[in-house]
Amino acid sequence: MNDDLKRYSRQILFAPIGEAGQERLRASRVLLCGCGALGTVIAETLTRAGVGHLRIVDRDFVDLSNLQRQVLFDELDVEERLPKVIAASQKLKAINHQVTLEPIVADIDHTNILEFARGVDLILDGTDNFEIRFLINDASLETGIPWIYAGCLGSHGQFMTIFPNQSACLRCLMDQVPDPGTTQTCDTAGILGPTVSILASFQCVEALKILTGHADEIEPMLTIIDIWQTTFRRMSLADLRDRADCPACQHGERLWLSGRAGSQTTVLCGRNAVQVSPSERKTLDLDQLAERLATAGEIQANPFLLRFRLTNSETELTIFRDGRAIVQGTDDAAVAKGLYARYVGN
């Protein structure tokens, strides 16, 4: 065995991979969108497994509340407020120098996603909101690059692999991004570390199948797991693409990639604040939102808006019934969008 391959001997012994599969893995390039909970587990697993080139894009800094589940970060990263992709690459470099790492600190949006996806064989979803997943879905359909979705929250999660223009896409499954305020987020409902590592590990298994030449072993399924209830269910999406008459994968609509959908941000000059507006006006149930946010900070509400101050922070979100929010305490549009996704939802 080639010296470079020795470190992978146990993986090569696994018959479906073998030396040929390992070589294919080494020749492959992956885009990882997001380097948080799912993202750090994916990055570590693929780096140890010996993927050739790993491009990681994330807009955020390491925060103390990340350490419970984001496996590549430590207290020093928090102290230094390092960008997540930078802190992650430092650890990954020490784990496997053979992998070419390309950390990029950026907010993924419709203007840059095709550039990030250029030349990769696979896109992995390590993000935390549906708006960006619909953008990834559009980019995948446009480029023909497969992608692997996973979402997790509390003790449950789900994942599916999308082969664009062959299997059902995210939009076949859901015609629209769930309304702002109706989905829970990890910042309001919590998350267990094992939920993340199990879901991310399943994404990595799917990735290994695709990158070592076993894509045909992936079934068109949405898999739904609850680790607290210990339940595991699979829902077949076999003929969904034919049945769904999907605007994106059957009719070529690219709402997110064209920038027609997706939340818009405006920096409010001199106010240290950013306004985030969903592209379609929605009506929020502010009472329901207030109830959800009560565990994460201080709430003040009137019939028109809800003011939410994060616990131990100077950051304040003023959320309007039409879905707009003004994020006070930052002039960075990416930070404001992150807070909006985290606390208001998608």
């Binding site: 935390d128 979402g151 997790c152 949405l222 969904l240």
Partner: peptide
């Protein structure tokens, strides 16, 4: 899901079918 198959809105449900519900999960 009806009998572990994704079910679209127009699909009829047979009397003995197993029906299961899953909301989309956003976090990560």
């Amino acid at each position: 899901a009806v009998d572990n198959q994704y079910a679209t809105d127009e699909m009829p449900i047979a009397p003995q079918a197993e029906i299961a519900c899953f909301p989309p999960v956003s976090g990560g």
